[in-house]
Amino acid sequence: MVDGIYNQSYRLPNFLVETIDTPLPVPVYFMRSVGSTAAVFFWESFISDLANRAGIDQYTYRRNMLSHDPLALRVLDVVAAAAHWTTPPAPGHARGISYNCYVGRGGRFKTYVAQVVELAPDGDRLVLKRVFCAVDPGLVINPNTLTAQIEGGIGFALTTALHSRITFANGVVEQSNFDSYPLLAIDEMPEIVPLILPSDRPPQGFGEVVLAPVAPAIAQALLQATGRRIDVMPLPADAFRR
């Protein structure tokens, strides 16, 4: 429920996380990324809000609050450099940056992830063109498989970020098949730029780690491009209106 928040990485002198169990009328269970997709969407969006409130660049703000953690800085710096973050995007385009250190299996592994998403105009809409993803998963045994997890994990996260809406009527779920509960299709799949960092750490976990930063990075880019602040998932389709 609070994966990625209670164990978040930013240096915050006063930090307290409390949770309250809320009985739900429907059973909920794990999905890929466990709690981090929902929690990090809130958390990274909150960090984005703080940066905007402070009037500080999103990359610089995160960097300042991660200065105690060289591995965190490394993924952030690599993704920002690859995406030419310090060069402003072309007119009509927008970028968002996000970070998460995925702490998995009760603290047994830590995988560092930073992403930059690029939105581009397409008619009267913004579309996701490219995602840069820097990862430090420890020693990489099979870079091909790892790259596949970066590509597929971001695509999986995009289904959640853009499409996966469940609604209820008269006690039952209204969605029943892919017409009402779509998956991401190939025409929505952005270009992926994987950035795999060398590491002497033992191999860490990777199957779920790239998912959580996707949605908050898109929301941050949308805010920059349209002035609309989105705090619900799936991101509403009209949020991508130019």
Partner: peptide, 20 residues
């Protein structure tokens, strides 16, 4: 052209980058 021809084939693993 690939997007149009392959748009009806969904992949939950999102292997679309490599399909293309």
């Amino acid at each position: 052209g690939i997007d149009l021809a392959m748009g009806g084939n969904l992949c939950r693993c999102a292997t679309y980058v490599r399909i293309r």
